[in-house]
Design a protein around this nucleic acid. Structure first.
Lengths: 197, 197
DNA sequence: CTGGACAGACTAACCGGTCGGTATGTATCA
DNA sequence: TGATACATACCGACCGGTTAGTCTGTCCAG
């Protein structure tokens, strides 16, 4: 039997990543010791430093995973064969749902970026910008075609919406009165209503 | 001459608070050592622990200051003798301006809450709720009188707006193309437009 | 001479990361 | 088939460095 799956069926690197994600979201990056991560994953430090170069690397992996997923989902909605209104609404609501379904990731994303090393921070920022720009392009397209109001610069509208997404990890509770889809519909509504000409 | 004002005219406790605010915003709470704070303030650890019980206390003071100022300003706008639309717009825009003018505070506020001790965290949350509820009351008032749409629960609208305020510290740059008032007007516009019946 | 306002040396606890070592799996060849 | 050789996966003691907080002492105002 391969050592990689001792204990349960999940490979060690993924177990470490999962444990780190949970702990980083729970206590923050600096308050989580490498020792705690490896204990939660049921291995020792040797294993962690066998698969990851540093604690920082672990955090970076979390970011990479989130960014990849979000960008893929946005592209799918943005490139669909639908009227612009529907595409924007779909993308805006979807990012809310996936954020709620991965609140830990969101928490880490917005709270721990400054813990990344400068190069990795730069890399993450660059990918974030790609995401931001794809979203902005959607809004601009609607503005050009007269479906959305031009009163507010598209850039600002993007930040307005992502502010609310960002904020979710602060106030949303899974045991609260609203489900993910419900919140998503409301937030997408607010965005679309704000954009009415 | 009192030792409290050695060096410049500012009393030591305020110098410590100012230094801590800047450093916490710059590097984060955990990455800022007590030694760095006292050096930036031109004193030693003896002085810090003479005035503050702990590093945590220092952070708490930053929160208390921000909360007090924001609550006062909100109350002023909310209780003014104006139509509800104007009062909400005024409050919504004002919080944006003051947030931009104290970006360090905002950065710390949303990034470092989880570093507070449980009791202090609870205390801060309670005050935050008061603020949130005053703002929500404004929106509900407008909804009741038919000036604002009832399509979205008032609670969610509040979180929507404060999401964008929260987000400011992430993207706003003082040397960017927009001034504080300009951004504030746009964001208040978006809120009011989203609330149109 | 008393007490507040500090200075600064000190401590005990961690923490990230390293490193030598071991166990297991796999490829090669006689 | 069985032995040899090497690679991969991991263990856990250990190290250098840092940190929040303490404690004793000094100095000056009133």
């Amino acid at each position: 039997m391969a050592r990689t799956t001792d204990g349960d069926g999940t490979p060690v690197p993924q177990r470490l990543l999962a444990a780190a994600t949970r702990l980083f979201a729970e206590r923050g990056y600096d308050r989580t010791s490498v020792q705690e991560i490896v204990e939660a994953a049921g291995v020792t430090k040797g294993a962690l430093y066998h698969y990851f170069g540093s604690k920082d690397d672990l955090l970076h992996e979390v970011y990479a995973r989130v960014l990849r997923v979000q960008q893929e989902r946005l592209d799918a909605f943005a490139n669909a064969d639908e009227p612009i209104e529907k595409r924007l609404r779909g993308a805006a609501a979807d990012v809310v749902v996936t954020t709620i379904e991965n609140l830990d990731d969101a928490m880490i994303f917005f709270r721990s970026m400054h813990h990344l090393s400068p190069e990795k921070n730069k890399q993450v920022r660059a990918e974030r910008r790609r995401y931001h720009e794809r979203f902005r392009a959607l809004i601009e397209e609607g503005q050009e075609s007269g479906v959305f109001s031009k009163a507010t610069p598209a850039d600002l509208v993007v930040d307005y919406h992502f502010g609310s997404v960002h904020h979710l990890s602060t106030w949303y509770r899974p045991d609260g009165p609203m489900g993910p889809q419900e919140v998503a519909d409301h937030l997408a509504d607010l965005l679309l209503r704000a954009l009415r000409p």
